[in-house]
Design a binder for these strands. Structure first.
Lengths: 162, 162
DNA sequence: GTCATATTTGTATATTTATTCATTTATAAT
DNA sequence: ATTATAAATGAATAAATATACAAATATGAC
């Protein structure tokens, strides 16, 4: 049953979602002013509660600026129906402070893509052949840190369902 | 060029990501205390800056509680080397005394071919994946020399197109 | 309508997070 | 090494956001 029969509140929540999805909102004060412009007014306190209710949170845009965003937009998982890249891995070893990942033939680039997309700064880059990936850590990053990192990427991968 | 050469900072960033991914962090103060527990200490101000750098933001978990979380699959801005941009090249960095060149998907081998054909002594060889090129300098060749070299190749490249 | 109860809201304030500025530390050039 | 330049940091503080509590408003039963 719908708990939100209060019209004022209901339409305010709708307006907030609309504003957040369309505009680049950087603070609650800013959103407040935008909403006032449309005749819908409330206080920052109410906005704070509404945003929590909606799951709208302040994150960062691509340039590192603040931006309020809808819950779906935060964890953008555009890629991946497959999501079982880690199963293609047959072995891992270290040589010259670089990690070598072995996969079933043809799977290297798919696994490497997964690693690249994780955007981990510990990893300067990967180069994938057909069944082997060369993972190049940044300077001063320990092998353990990279292993941690790779482990995490594969873990996240298997958890990724939404 | 690699921006993360500071050991203390680099490992702190790693720890932060680890903490955020493993624990349910609800505030910076909380994270601060957790980190202190491992011997890594800094102030809330530094943490605030680090979190922005990492794109880690405070959102809501399924129950509406606060929780710091890693960024979605937002593209990280590659550290670019000014003046070396050729159309397909999206970024350049150094790791383990090797140059890594990032390109748009599918362009790596084309760019690598260009480099190979220049026949520069400084460059022992290249290995290209789909969107990443590993440039291996000869022994005793400085990074600067290789950059000079690559810059020259790209300059020639862009002149060809005009 | 009245009454009882639950929800919503604003004010004031507490808490949390971001930023300024001075200092220190690292990196680069000579 | 020495000096210059840039990056990182902490302390203090500003700015932004959350919450306690009282008042107002809505909802449901009669």
């Amino acid at each position: 049953m719908n708990k939100y029969t209060n019209m004022t509140r209901a339409s305010r929540l709708i307006l907030i979602e609309k504003m957040v999805s369309e505009k680049n909102i950087t603070s609650q004060e800013e959103l407040l002013r935008l909403m006032e412009g449309t005749g819908m007014k409330c206080t920052q306190a109410t906005l704070s509660r509404d945003l929590r209710q909606l799951g709208v949170s302040r994150g960062f845009d691509s340039k590192g600026g603040y931006r309020y965003m809808l819950p779906g937009k935060t964890a953008k998982t555009a890629d991946t129906l497959p999501g079982h890249e880690s199963e293609a891995v047959t072995g891992i070893t270290w040589a010259r402070d670089m990690m070598l990942i072995y996969t079933y033939p043809g799977f290297a680039s798919a696994v490497a893509l997964k690693i690249d997309r994780a955007g981990r700064y510990e990893i300067a880059g990967t180069v994938a052949g057909d069944d082997t990936i060369l993972v190049i850590p940044r300077d001063n990053i320990s092998n353990e840190a990279v292993e941690e990192c790779i482990s995490l990427i594969f873990k996240n991968n298997s958890q990724e369902k939404q």
